[in-house]
Write a protein that binds this DNA or RNA. Structure first.
Length: 220
DNA sequence: CACCAGGCAAGTA
DNA sequence: TACTTGCATGGT
C-alpha cells in the first residue's frame, strides 16, 4: 500500500477524529441524500430531508406514490428541484423493479453488478452510485468527490485533470479494500475540504496536511 | 453584487 | 472523444 495514503489518513484522523458518516438515520435516507446533495451544500439538503421527515414521507413506498410536482416542492431547498425530483423517481422505479425496494436484496447482489445498474439509472453518476454502495450498503468502494480531487491535486499527489476512475484507482490500489476505512477516509477528506480546502482557498496555510511532503520518506 | 456547494446528462462538433 | 451548458437554492 502507498505509505502516503496511510500517512494522510492517520494525520486526518488524529486531527479531526471520527466523523460518523454518512449523516443519516437509515440507509434509505443515505440514498436519498446522495442524490439530493449533487453539486449542492449539505445544509440545503438537510432542509429538504427534514421536510420529507416532517411529512412522514421518507420511505420508498411513500415517495414512490408522491406526485413529482409535490416531491419537487418538498425538496426545493436542495436546488435543481425539478431535475432531482425526476432523479429520485427514476431511482425509486429502479429499486422497486429490480430489488422490490428491499435493502436486504440490494445487499445480497454483487456490488459490481449493482454499480452497473445504478449507473444506468438516469441521474445517478459514479459518485452518487459509489456513495450509495459505500454509505448505504457498506460495500468497499472508494467515493471520489470534488474535495478529494482538489485536496490531492493541490498536494500534487494526483494529476489535476485525472478522471473519476483514475482517482478511485489511486485510492483503491493504495489501501486495503475495507469499507470501514473507505468510509472514514472519505468523510475525513470532506471535513478537511470544508474547513481548509474550499475553492477560493482560504486557510491553506493552516491545513493539517500543509507539510505532508516533508513527513514522507522518498516513496511513491 | 459575485461566487460557491459532497454532480449529472444532454447537446454540439 | 472532448467540450459546453442547464439545472437552482441558500450562504458568504
Amino acid at each position: 500500500m502507498k505509505r502516503i495514503l496511510a500517512l494522510i489518513y492517520r494525520k486526518l484522523y488524529a486531527y479531526f477524529g471520527p466523523q460518523y458518516w454518512w449523516p443519516a438515520e437509515t440507509p434509505f435516507e443515505v440514498m436519498i441524500g446522495a442524490i439530493l446533495t449533487q453539486n449542492t451544500s449539505w445544509s440545503n439538503v438537510e432542509r429538504a430531508i427534514n421536510n420529507l421527515k416532517k411529512e412522514r414521507l421518507l420511505s420508498a413506498k411513500k415517495l414512490n406514490r408522491l406526485r413529482p410536482r409535490r416531491l419537487a416542492a418538498l425538496i426545493k431547498s436542495a436546488g435543481y428541484y425539478n431535475i432531482k425530483s425526476r432523479r429520485l423517481k427514476s431511482f425509486l422505479e429502479f429499486i422497486f423493479k429490480e430489488y422490490d425496494a428491499s435493502l436486504e436484496k440490494m445487499r445480497e447482489a454483487p456490488y459490481t453488478k449493482l454499480r452497473q445498474q445504478l449507473l444506468a439509472v438516469n441521474g445517478i453518476g459514479q459518485e452518487t452510485a459509489d456513495s450509495i454502495l459505500l454509505y448505504a450498503l457498506g460495500k468497499p468502494v472508494f467515493v471520489v468527490d470534488a474535495y478529494t480531487k482538489r485536496i490531492f491535486s493541490r498536494h500534487k499527489l494526483i494529476d489535476e485533470d485525472a478522471d473519476y476512475a483514475q482517482v478511485q484507482e489511486f485510492f483503491m490500489t493504495g489501501l486495503p479494500r475495507n469499507a470501514r476505512l473507505f468510509n472514514e477516509y472519505h468523510a475525513l477528506l470532506v471535513r478537511l475540504g470544508k474547513e481548509f480546502c474550499l475553492k477560493n482557498n482560504p486557510k491553506c496555510a493552516l491545513c493539517p496536511l500543509r507539510d505532508i511532503k516533508k513527513d514522507r520518506g522518498g516513496e511513491e
